[in-house]
Simulated scan of single mutants.
Amino acid sequence: MSTYPARHAPADVAESPQRRLLVRGGLAAAAATAAVGTGAIVPAMAATHPTVRLGSRGSAVAELQRKLSGGGYRPGAADGIFGSRTRAAVIDCQGDHRLVKDGICGPRTWAVVDDLDSGGGGGDDPEEPSEPPTGSTLKRGDRGSAVKDLQIRLRARGYWHSGSDGIYGQTTEQAVMAVQKVYGLTRDGVCGPATMSVVRRMGRKVPRSSSGTVIEIELRRQIMIFVVNGQTQWVFNTSTGKAGWRTPPGRFTIFRQIDGMRYAPLGKLWRPKYFNGGIALHGSTSIPGYPASHGCTRLSNSAINYIWSAGLAPIGRRVWVY
């Protein structure tokens, strides 16, 4: 169950037998022209990939798995076998980029997957993009190459958002707000000159833990950090307990989770993962730049969906609140 209204782009264009023959014969351009003649929109390079789905096998599936992993999704090993984990990763990717969530990697989904390499994935930092225009301001709703450059820089330094698609949506806004919190800037999610200056020069956030896998919740800065062996993998914007409901500091473990909506006495919790009594990490439609919850750690619904799909917070995962 999701709290977001459905906003789907047109479905992937199905391949006809004739189109498959054209592609196999090396006539990719002719296939694209034929598709345009039917009114379908086929992204550039789409004709170089076959449509793959549950049960498919081969090098194209292995390529898909590698690119999904590089983009922060978890399709399992790049073994060339399109199983349930790969399908789940495709669905997550489709949902993050407003495609129909059918788990089938056709032309439109391939166009997004091909672009994931430039977005980083928590591993090696990708090549830095060119400098954005000095003095420019980027905000929610903006589109274009400057937004994509910003997104690449954010993911390269571990600030999570759903993908470098050139669209300044909610998760990009949340990532910018996390940067602003770490560096003591105005917490508005707008990337103006001061924020852009920080984005150009920043490194990865330094965590407190030094070994093992730990989720760190920093109350002063209102961020959540996913850490592996002392290295920050992802930083998420969060909102913890407000006055009278302060989130207690301490060291805990996740002991309970609900894969769906929890209608609690104090509000709705999307896909909560409990670590201290009734206090949980959970999705919400409101994650402001200040403490606003009744003790829980709020994340965007997209962020908690990613945390579930990537297996970042299983039962038993350590949580440090400080």
Rank of each mutant, 00 (worst) to 15 (best):
R20E: 14
A29K: 07
A31K: 07
A32I: 13
T38Q: 12
A46L: 10
P50I: 12
R57N: 12
G58T: 11
A62P: 05
R66D: 10
K67F: 02
L68S: 04
G80M: 10
F82R: 03
D92C: 11
D102V: 03
G122K: 02
P126A: 02
P129G: 01
S136T: 14
S136P: 03
L138N: 10
S145H: 05
R155M: 11
R157S: 11
S162C: 12
G166R: 03
A175Y: 07
A175V: 07
K181R: 15
L185P: 04
P193E: 12
P193N: 11
M196G: 04
V198N: 12
M202N: 10
V206L: 09
T213W: 13
I225L: 15
Q231M: 10
Q233R: 15
W234Y: 10
T253C: 03
F255D: 14
Q257D: 12
I258M: 02
D259I: 13
M261Y: 00
R262L: 15
Y263Q: 05
P265V: 10
G267M: 06
L269N: 04
P272M: 03
Y274Q: 09
A280G: 02
I287C: 01
I287W: 00
P288K: 05
C296A: 04
C296W: 03
W308T: 06
G316L: 01
G316H: 04
